[in-house]
Amino acid sequence: MTTQTNHHPSQDLLKTFSEGQLSTGMSIAISAHLDYCSSCRQSVEVYESELASEWVATDPGADGPQLSESNILMDRITSQPQVVPITQATRPRRPVELHMHERSVRLPGVLSRVAEKGVVWKKLAGGINTAKLTLDRDAQCDFMYMKPGSQAPRHTHRGLEVTLVLDGTFEDELGEYRPGDFVLRESTQVHTPRSDEGCLCYSVLDSPLLFTSGWSRLLNPFQRLLFNRQLRHSH
């Protein structure tokens, strides 16, 4: 499924993804992009190996786990069966297809898991359909299907909007986007997406606190509250 993509997540996002610190909705968008993009895959591999080295080099300090109990723990663990390589459990599951009027689209790995149980489409104005996904309480995640010749109303949003193109193309004031493209719009950017040939996307509206580092972003409940309230209004 590797194709030429022109729009990628920033290195900051890829690193935060490698740390496991992004929201679920955003992590899924990056994971799906990686299925299309070998250069971002390589970046993630490099970040993972750097983070692992940093982690191992850090002195954990005095408070370690209770190593005195380790023998009991070891016995309990080593009495468990191990995974047999290449079994049903470890084999990748089949990709899932989304069916729309004009087309069927095979989804990348993680989105196949997301859509496995089926999705419910809802018609919006301007030839746009969305299927809301319950994945993440902190981010709004949808499949979005723009029918050929459709145009979304001009909008801005609090927080970050990421659109990952899965099939077809769409364009806005800043460019044209093809499958695998990872399009990020910040709250200040007004845009009007439209699609001549039709387009299926996965979209995430993430909390505005995305780039404040690490866990401190949990310490800003006021902003989060405003964001959540806005999410509720938009439904």
Partner: peptide, 15 residues
């Protein structure tokens, strides 16, 4: 968070 998706799905190796 809602069930149904896990880190192993997100960080699965690209097959």
């Amino acid at each position: 968070q809602p069930d149904g998706i896990s880190a192993d799905d997100i960080y699965a190796e690209t097959e």
